[in-house]
Structures are given as C-alpha cells and as structure tokens.
Computed example of a mutant assay.
Amino acid sequence: MNTLNNIEKRIKNISEQYPNDMIGGFITGDGPIPCDIMFVGEAPGKTEVELGKPFVGKAGANFEKYLNSIGLRRDNVRITNTCYFRPIKRKISKSGRETISNRPPKVSEINLFKDILNDEINLVNPKIIVTLGNIPLKRLTDFKSIGECHGNLIFNKEINRNIFPMYHPSSLIYNKSEEFLNIYRNDWEKLSETLLSL
C-alpha cells in the first residue's frame, strides 16, 4: 500500500543498505499531502541532512524568497528530491586533510528511487510539478537541458502530470549576472501565471 510511512521506510532501507559509502545521510519529502504544487529538487546537501528537510541551505533561502514573492509559503507546497540521499565525494589534500563535498547523483542512484518518487507523486497528486535543475528535469521529461525548456509548461503523458521546469535556486549563487537574474525572476512570474490557469 502506497502510504507516506511506506515511502519513508523504503527511502531509509535503500539509503542504509546502499553498498557505496559515498553518501552522507538521507531525507524524505516535506509538506502537505495531498498538495496542488510539488517541487522536485536534485538531492539533499549537508544542511538538508542535518535539519532533515529539503531546501534549507543557501539555495533554500533563494528558493523561499522567490516562493514568497509569488504569494506562496513553504507550508503551502510539497518539496522533495529525485535522489533522497546525499551523494558526496571525499578529497584528501596533500597535507592529509579530508574534505567532503556534494556531488550530483549518478543515474544508477536516481534509478534506485525511481518508483519511490513516482509513488510520492501519486500520493501527493499535484496539479503541477516544478522541477528545479537538470536532474529532476531529465528524470521527468525528455529534455536534456534546462536551457531548452525553462519557464514552459510540459505535459508528461507517462505519469499524466503537468511539469514546469525551472533553474535550480543554487544557480543564483554561481551566476550573478543581471541577465540570468532577470531570466530566473521571469520564470517565477510565469509560474505564478501558470498556477492561476490550472
């Protein structure tokens, strides 16, 4: 039976039994069920795992700012990930100091959670799924790059859902150009208009 409890147990089992040690904890989705609007990110980072919630780090602050700008709050939306555990890479410096950083999830890691994400989508039953970044975009559409389709409504016949691709909020940390900021802001305005039409 597809329940939230069942989904969370499956995420825990996969994460704890993952044979590759290059992961740093896991989280589950956050927000109401059912819910009209569902955001799907890539994978949790360090802060997300520490606090047990998606989008609570630097990228999360950007996300929340723009979410609020179109009249929504975190508790109005469901937020989840394509990969539920934190993929990490370890690096040893010449002095022997170890650093741990995030890495994108591998296709095999995304596929581990494919059925779970589908089940979470069915449980949430959203009118629209907003993908944040290339990884959820490739998982839920046939597009290969966010640049091809951001800010446009796409219908996924396989899962019978509206998909609205957007840039990942962390992109604002790396790309501070005025041009990109305008594109990003414009996509949120388009999302706001799209929500009114659904």
Results as ranks from 00 to 15, higher is better:
139 R>F: 14
130 V>P: 01
121 I>L: 05
117 L>Y: 12
141 T>F: 09
146 I>S: 00
121 I>A: 02
119 D>N: 14
145 S>Y: 04
119 D>M: 10
120 E>K: 09
135 I>T: 15
125 N>W: 04
128 I>K: 06
117 L>W: 10
137 L>M: 06
140 L>G: 02
130 V>F: 09
130 V>S: 05
117 L>N: 12
122 N>K: 15
127 K>L: 10
148 E>W: 01
145 S>M: 02
148 E>A: 08
132 L>M: 14
134 N>Y: 06
124 V>K: 02
148 E>N: 11
118 N>S: 12
130 V>L: 06
139 R>P: 01
130 V>T: 08
120 E>P: 09
132 L>Y: 09
138 K>R: 14
119 D>Y: 07
143 F>W: 06
141 T>H: 06
127 K>T: 13
128 I>Y: 06
145 S>A: 09
122 N>S: 14
135 I>E: 09
122 N>Q: 15
146 I>N: 00
131 T>M: 10
133 G>C: 04
120 E>S: 10
124 V>P: 00
136 P>N: 05
122 N>L: 10
129 I>D: 00
133 G>V: 15
145 S>E: 07
136 P>H: 08
135 I>H: 01
143 F>Q: 04
142 D>E: 13
127 K>P: 01
145 S>R: 10
128 I>Q: 08
121 I>C: 05
143 F>N: 06
131 T>D: 05
119 D>H: 13
121 I>F: 07
134 N>K: 15
146 I>A: 01
140 L>C: 06
122 N>F: 08
147 G>V: 07
133 G>R: 11
135 I>C: 03
140 L>T: 11
119 D>I: 11
131 T>K: 03
140 L>F: 11
140 L>S: 07
